[in-house]
């Protein structure tokens, strides 16, 4: 769903969540939509955010912000000598805090000047090439201005161990599925989800093939989609932009009750409009589900940070589950299964 955050995401603009939105509108349950991983070190270029790998920090890169005109290596001071290596959500939280201070001047910089030459040659060649190509900066000599950007969605279509969603014969794998990650995602684990999950889902689909052939699928046919003319394209465009504005406004790195409530109300008015193309309506429904999940989780946990509830609360140690019942978007909380058997949807 990175396409829902244009200019604020590392992923492609083409992932606009339209397939996910289509199944959501038909009653498929989505989990943990509020858990969106923001990556701390990205650079805005050419309409998207270029990712600067964490390898930069593990090889010796340091984050700083100008405080009273002087570089302040805030992660080292606030989180100890290994401060630059804190997890993504913590780094992002600290970046947000320091950028809000009156004595600090954004942006935050990634200082890679102390990284040894051998690391550049053996492991960081890609970073150097991209900084040169897209930013005209030599990171060996110049600190790079960075900002956090949407990088991964831990939530998605709720699936069981065999990668089945809550509708027959629907399987979801990879980033669009909610299975292997929780409030956070460790670097590299998305590959686990894609490779292992893909194998499991394929096996399940093949096993269920006979049943599928015998049954009628519960999903709608595509039906007639009206041709778009300039007018409808413009209206859809305006609606889409407003949805994106709402999202980037209330679903940033730090979230808050009144902004989320306002967004939910405005989104509801939008999807209840008449003469709305199904694609547009479905997208707004899915976006509502994301915002409502963030609203209902009144705590901070992992990637979901609430300024009004800054700590994790034990009663929220559950997954959210969002679904559309035909009339309203609903959010409920699911217990996290203690053992394997209980893991089925």
């Amino acid at each position: 769903m990175s396409g829902l955050f244009p200019g604020h995401a590392t992923g492609t603009l083409k992932n606009d969540g339209s397939a996910a939105a289509a199944v959501f509108s038909q009653g498929v349950e989505f989990g943990n939509l509020e858990f969106i991983q923001y990556h701390p070190t990205t650079v805005p270029v050419s309409g998207k955010n270029l990712l600067i790998s964490e390898a930069a920090r593990s090889e010796g890169g340091r984050l700083y912000i100008e405080r009273n005109g002087v570089p302040w290596y805030f992660l080292e001071e606030l989180c100890g000598p290994e401060g630059n290596l804190v997890s993504r959500d913590l780094a992002v939280r600290k970046m947000y805090e320091v950028c809000s201070r009156p004595d600090c001047r954004p942006p935050v910089y990634l200082d890679m000047r102390e990284i040894p030459e051998v690391a550049w040659q053996k492991r960081l060649e890609g970073i150097k090439e991209e900084c040169g190509k897209f930013l005209n900066i030599n990171p060996e000599k110049t600190p790079v201005p960075i900002e956090p950007a949407v990088h991964y969605f831990m939530g998605g279509i709720l699936v069981d161990e065999r990668h089945r969603a809550n509708k027959n014969f629907l399987y979801a794998v990879g980033e669009c599925a909610c299975q292997y990650h929780g409030a956070n995602r460790l670097g590299g684990n998305s590959m686990l989800g894609a490779l292992y999950g893909g194998k499991v889902a394929a096996r399940t689909a093949v096993e269920e093939l006979e049943k599928y052939r015998a049954a009628a699928c519960g999903f709608q046919e595509k039906g007639n989609i009206p041709e778009k003319n300039f007018e409808t394209q413009r209206e859809d465009g305006a609606l889409r932009r407003r949805t994106e504005e709402i999202l980037s406004g209330c679903m940033g790195t730090v979230r808050e009750e009144t902004e989320l409530q306002k967004a939910v109300r405005e989104l509801e008015k939008m999807w209840k409009r008449e003469h709305l193309a199904p694609e547009e309506r479905n997208r707004i429904l899915l976006v509502s589900a994301m915002v409502m999940s963030a609203l209902e989780r009144r705590e901070s946990r992992g990637a979901h940070i609430r300024s009004d509830y800054p700590d994790a609360r034990p009663e929220f140690q559950k997954s959210t589950a969002a679904y559309f019942d035909g009339k309203q978007v609903r959010i409920r909380f699911r217990d996290i299964p203690a053992d394997k058997e209980a893991g089925n949807v």
């Binding site: 492609t12 083409k14 998207k48 300039f230 465009g237």
Partner: peptide, 15 residues
């Protein structure tokens, strides 16, 4: 003259 948006393929935007 009013024009429809230009269709083009794009994905990673970073080569």
């Amino acid at each position: 003259k009013a024009a429809a948006p230009v269709q083009w393929e794009c994905n990673c935007l970073q080569g």
